[in-house]
C-alpha cells in the first residue's frame, strides 16, 4: 500500500513539523531580548519604582477617605469579619492584623471572597488603589497594631538569592513556581507578586506561611528578597528555552517521553517499515 504509506508519512511529517514549531514557539518569545545581556544591565529596576499601593496617597481629604473606607468595609467585609473587625463564625478577627495584611489580602485579590474557602487564591483586585488605601486605613483604625506596609528599596540580588534559598525555596520552590503543602494548602507561585506584596507576605505570613518579623529578617533583607523575587519572574532566567512551567524533572521526563520519544519512534516507523507491508 504505497499510497497509504505515502499519506501516512505526510501525516507524520506534518505532525513532526507541528511539534517542532510548537517547541519553537515558547523560546521564540524569549529569543527577543538581547542574547547576552551585559552583566551590568542585569540588575532589575523593578523595585526602584514602587507600585501604586506602596505609598497610600492621602486622597482628596482624610475625612472622605475614612467614609469611603467604612462604607467599603461595611459592604464587602463586615458580613464575615464583623462590623468592628472582631471576626465571626465565617471569618477571623481583623484586630491587630496590621496594614500590611489588609493591603496584601485585598491588593492581591484574595479578599473579598464570595464563599468561605480554605485558601483564597490570587485574582484581580476588586478595588482601585485608592479604595484599598481607604480600606487599609479603616481596618487599622480597629487598633491592635500589627505590621505596617513595608517600604521596599533596591536590594542586593546576591543576598536576596541566598535568603530566598534559605527561607522561601522550601515551600515556594527554588524556581518560585510554588508547591503543594498538606491538606490541600498550596504555596503559590511568586511570579505575579509585586515587590511590596512580597515584602508584605514576608512580614505578615498569610495563611500557613511562617512570619518573618524584623528579628528574623531586617528591612534591608526583605528588600533584597523582594528584588530577587522580581528577578526570578524574569524570563531572562529561562536561558535554556521553554521552562516547562519550571516544574522540574518529572515535567522534563514527560517531555522526553511524549515529544522526543514520540518523534523518534515515528521516525523509526517511517524508516523501518518494509515497502508493501
Amino acid at each position: 500500500m504505497p499510497t497509504r504509506g505515502d499519506r501516512w508519512s505526510h501525516v507524520t511529517r506534518a505532525v513532526t513539523v507541528g511539534m517542532v514549531v510548537a517547541l519553537a514557539a515558547g523560546p521564540a518569545a524569549l529569543a527577543a531580548p538581547a542574547p547576552n545581556a551585559p552583566p551590568g544591565s542585569n540588575a532589575p529596576s523593578g523595585p526602584a519604582a514602587p507600585p501604586e499601593t506602596a505609598a497610600p496617597s492621602a486622597g482628596p481629604s482624610a475625612l472622605a477617605g475614612a467614609t469611603q473606607g467604612r462604607e467599603l468595609y461595611r459592604q464587602n467585609c463586615a458580613s464575615c469579619h464583623g462590623d468592628q473587625g472582631r471576626g465571626s463564625q465565617r471569618g477571623p478577627s481583623l484586630v491587630g492584623v496590621g496594614a500590611a495584611s489588609v493591603d496584601f489580602q485585598v491588593g492581591t485579590g484574595r479578599m473579598p471572597i464570595p464563599d468561605e474557602m480554605q485558601q483564597p487564591r490570587r485574582g484581580r483586585p476588586v478595588f482601585s488603589a485608592d479604595e484599598i488605601a481607604a480600606l487599609v486605613e479603616h481596618v487599622t483604625s480597629f487598633g491592635g497594631g500589627g505590621p505596617g506596609i513595608p517600604r521596599v528599596t533596591e536590594g542586593s540580588l546576591g543576598t536576596g538569592r541566598e535568603l530566598f534559598a534559605a527561607n522561601c525555596a522550601p515551600c515556594h520552590g527554588g524556581t518560585g513556581a510554588g508547591a503543594a503543602l498538606t491538606n490541600g494548602w498550596n504555596a503559590p507561585p511568586l511570579y505575579e507578586a509585586t515587590p511590596v506584596q512580597v515584602a508584605e507576605a514576608i512580614r505578615v505570613g498569610p495563611g500557613l506561611m511562617p512570619v518573618f518579623p524584623s528579628q528574623v529578617l531586617t528591612d534591608q533583607q526583605v528588600s533584597d528578597l523582594a528584588t530577587y523575587v522580581q528577578r526570578l519572574r524574569s524570563e531572562r532566567l529561562d536561558r535554556g528555552g521553554n521552562p516547562l512551567g519550571r516544574l522540574g524533572p518529572l515535567a522534563e521526563g514527560v517531555a522526553a517521553w511524549v515529544v522526543a520519544l514520540g518523534l523518534l519512534v515515528a521516525a523509526a516507523r517511517w524508516l523501518g517499515r518494509r515497502a508493501g507491508e
Partner: peptide
Amino acid sequence: ALGGLVQINPVWLYG
C-alpha cells in the same frame, strides 16, 4: 532541538 529550545535542569535557579 530539545537542548536548544526546552530548558532542562536550570541549576542556576535551584542554587
